[in-house]
């Protein structure tokens, strides 16, 4: 519960920020943070760095696009209270399937396999026109109006985003203390011992991926409402690497790292254009990523933690 408090400063944003900062910066950061949280969750507690988060988010995004209002003539419209649970269920299922494929893999093997899964999905969406509308994808996707509140307005949309982010963080924090959550961490640390005491590891691993799919799917719905379109490029290598960059910059050891990384990424993405050529953004983000990996393997969260610890120690020494 404690770490959900880290999100609270975000709740103060509407009091002083204009619509640009509210949605384009903080809203976008929180959405990307939710999707990255799904990766951080797997990395921190199952010990698996997965590249399939953009895919899981894409599954829910495509579900929303196919069954919701869009400006291409593909799919059919269902009421939002059917579409949203369906999107979450589909994303969770995609997590289960990816978990089943990658269940025996750890470390670098898992990276390669989830990457291959993600890119296969990218090519599939690009070639399939019946469900994914191929290269063009879907556009004109609108967030619904619920009980008189239009979710396309900046403030309600931001409040929705922050509640989802909060709920997902609380879900992760609560889940890891549950028996299943503890078993997941046991599988991370010593899979053979877990097997030896009679717990099959496959369902445990698959359920971790399912939770990851659930979280990424929630972020995916918000993302498709934010972007108002989805196409194969939304699940391509660009977004796959972006999510990884966010999670690594923020720190893979703690769920809150996903949000720190997302805010840093969005700020860089938005304002780097003031310092360097817009075209060279990838070089900049690559260098930042390399610097973080080489200098601070636990990311910005790890850096902040060690600075805080040093500061506390100094304060304590001064008092003596």
């Amino acid at each position: 519960m404690k770490s959900a408090l880290f999100i609270l400063p975000f709740a103060l944003v509407p009091f002083f920020a204009n619509d640009f900062w509210l949605v384009q910066i903080f809203g976008r950061a929180l959405i990307l943070g939710v999707i990255a949280l799904s990766l951080t969750f797997l990395a921190a507690y199952l010990g698996v760095v997965s590249f399939a988060q953009a895919t899981m988010a894409g599954v829910s995004g495509y579900t929303v696009a196919y069954f919701g209002p869009n400006s291409v003539d593909v799919g059919r419209e269902l009421p939002f209270y059917v579409v949203l649970p369906l999107a979450i269920i589909m994303a969770t299922l995609s997590g289960v399937i990816i978990g089943l494929i990658a269940r025996r893999s750890q470390g670098i093997y898992a990276i390669m396999i989830t990457l291959a899964v993600g890119v296969a999905f990218f090519y599939f969406t690009r070639q399939n026109y019946t469900y994914f509308n191929g290269w063009t994808g879907f556009s004109g996707i609108r967030a619904p109006e619920i009980a008189g509140t239009n979710l396309r307005d900046p403030l309600p949309f931001y409040l929705l985003i922050i509640s989802v982010a909060m709920l997902c963080l609380m879900l992760v924090n609560g889940f890891i203390k549950s028996p299943l959550g503890l078993t997941i961490q046991a599988v991370r640390d010593a899979p053979k011992r877990v097997l030896a005491i009679g717990i099959p590891t496959t369902p445990v691993i698959v359920s971790a991926y399912a939770i990851a799919g659930f979280i990424a799917g929630s972020g995916g719905i918000l993302n498709v409402w934010y972007q108002e379109r989805i196409s194969s490029f939304s699940v391509g290598l660009g977004p796959i690497v972006d999510i990884l960059v966010i999670a690594v910059i923020g720190g893979l050891k703690h769920p809150i790292g996903a949000f720190i990384g997302a805010l840093a990424f969005v700020l860089l993405d938005t304002f780097a254009v003031d310092f360097i050529d817009r075209e060279r953004f990838n070089t900049l983000i690559g260098l930042v990523l390399l610097a973080i990996i080489m200098g601070a393997p636990d990311g910005l969260h790890g850096l902040a933690k060690s600075w805080l610890a040093r500061f506390k120690k100094r304060v304590a020494e001064n008092q003596v």
Partner: peptide, 8 residues
């Protein structure tokens, strides 16, 4: 991860 950064 470092090699990913290098490739970017």
């Amino acid at each position: 991860l470092a090699s990913i950064a290098i490739s970017i």
